[in-house]
Design a protein around this nucleic acid. Structure first.
Lengths: 259, 259
DNA sequence: CGACATATTGATCGACTTCAAGTGTAGTGG
DNA sequence: CCACTACACTTGAAGTCGATCAATATGTCG
């Protein structure tokens, strides 16, 4: 079982009894609860081949019935749905460590597609192996389940931001969310992070036109909350950005508790 | 273009080896996969006390850390979040058979509240018992997990409707979703169902003002797609309502398959 | 350098909000 | 049975936010 360690993705040590985790997947689950060495091994043993995708490629297509689930080791990806009229909504953004289509293990048929927003390295985990984990590893199962629950929590938060807040607040909210999540897996620090999305893609995520995304971003810049140039976002005033975006990180559930 | 006709969605009998299910909870899980009699007993054995709530009461409050999860036996409930500015977004609507805060089993802290939209009967399932199920009943565990995945799928669908479609399309979409879900648990048939929400509440779900909900509903009435009076909705033209609402029931995943 | 994607700016339009008033309709008490 | 109250629904008018269309920068990569 061959397994690639991506470059700077996991700079912060995530330890399990003193052992550094090479696997961003385990690192992500460790933000919810401690994993035993044995569990980490089982998780790593469940992993199949590593694969690369270019930006813009579909990792999974709508209506696919994959026989494996995919986890992101490096790069960014987005869940999306396209309507008959061609309009696209991005319903979630994924960063290293995220299990991007764990859903397909039980739902079988993809009700949305997943696209690479940047070049991506992923690992495939056969559904077969996931099933075995559910048969013999209840604790690991609960943590995998939990990771999908957190995805759901993020969806609810997006609904609130989309339904009840202004374009610039919504934009601020997304920036807060992404920073917190990236920081948790060691992919961001010092209030700055690489942001590989275009304003048009951001518009698809926020439910806004690209033109209006641009104006919202400028508003955040004018308020001196952020800068964003050459694919890097810098948060200049976290407190105020949080306030503007009505951001409350509770829903990300980064707390290590017995689960 | 062909549309799925609701009657065809779940034609299989919802029984397990000839035994009628008294428990809408089991009925709901049976829309995903067959349960053995033993599993049904375990599920029913996991249930603790039954409770009643009046319309408008909170079933669960935000930041609660319940020690049990709650399933709806009768009545309607809604997940919601309130912002500091007082605006409220309903992020999901629940009908009999739905497990409304299974999330709290693993997430521990509620990141949203749940309110009764009509008088409700619920059962409480202690987390203790859910944990036991995850330790000894992998198949049942997978189905419970799946029910939360379907909730997540609905959230994504709402995001699309909210971000990319007009107010009246969004309204049409919600009516389609509710009808399909109610029909699956036997709470609706013949394209009509009791609808206990006010237009203001509907507005909180759709991210619209009550005034505009009213206008959207009138539009659907003018198009002769629906009627809605005295708390009952009648769908007069399912096919066109589906088309107007960009509704594709794939995301509800009402298909009995080995999971 | 040219070619092409991405970002920015301006002008106009439409969808939805807000505020305000008026119309059912069901429930309560006399 | 009617008067009164409380909500929910409906309608109108004015205002705002964000979409769309169109044009012009500004990269960025061969």
């Amino acid at each position: 079982m061959h397994y690639i360690v991506p470059g700077a993705v996991n700079t912060q040590p995530r330890f399990s009894q003193g052992r550094p985790l090479l696997n961003p997947l385990a690192a992500k689950l460790q933000t919810y609860d401690v994993l035993s060495d044995e569990e980490i091994q089982i998780l790593e043993g469940a992993v199949d081949r590593t694969q690369h995708f270019d930006a813009g490629q579909d990792l999974v297509r709508v209506h696919d019935q994959p026989t494996y689930s995919t986890a992101l080791l490096e790069g960014w990806a987005a869940r999306y749905k396209v309507l008959r009229n061609g309009r696209r909504q991005i319903t979630g953004i994924h960063v290293p460590g995220d299990f991007i289509d764990l859903h397909s293990f039980l739902l079988h048929t993809m009700d949305h597609g997943i696209i690479a927003l940047s070049p991506c390295w992923v690992v495939q985990v056969p559904h077969e192996n996931l099933r075995k984990i559910t048969e013999t590893e209840p604790h690991l199962t609960r943590l995998l389940w939990m990771s999908t629950l957190v995805d759901g929590a993020a969806h609810r938060e997006w609904l609130v931001a989309m339904g009840q807040t202004s374009a610039s607040a919504h934009t601020a909210h997304l920036i807060c969310e992404l920073y917190i999540r990236l920081e948790a897996v060691g992919a961001a620090s010092g209030y700055r992070f690489k942001f590989p999305m275009t304003q048009a893609q951001l518009g698809d995520a926020l439910g806004l036109s690209a033109v209006h995304v641009n104006r919202s971003v400028q508003e955040l810049r004018a308020m001196e909350l952020i800068t964003w140039q050459s694919g890097e976002v810098v948060i200049k005033d976290w407190e105020r950005l949080v306030r503007v975006g009505h951001f409350d990180p509770t829903y990300i559930h980064h707390q290590r508790e017995p689960r």
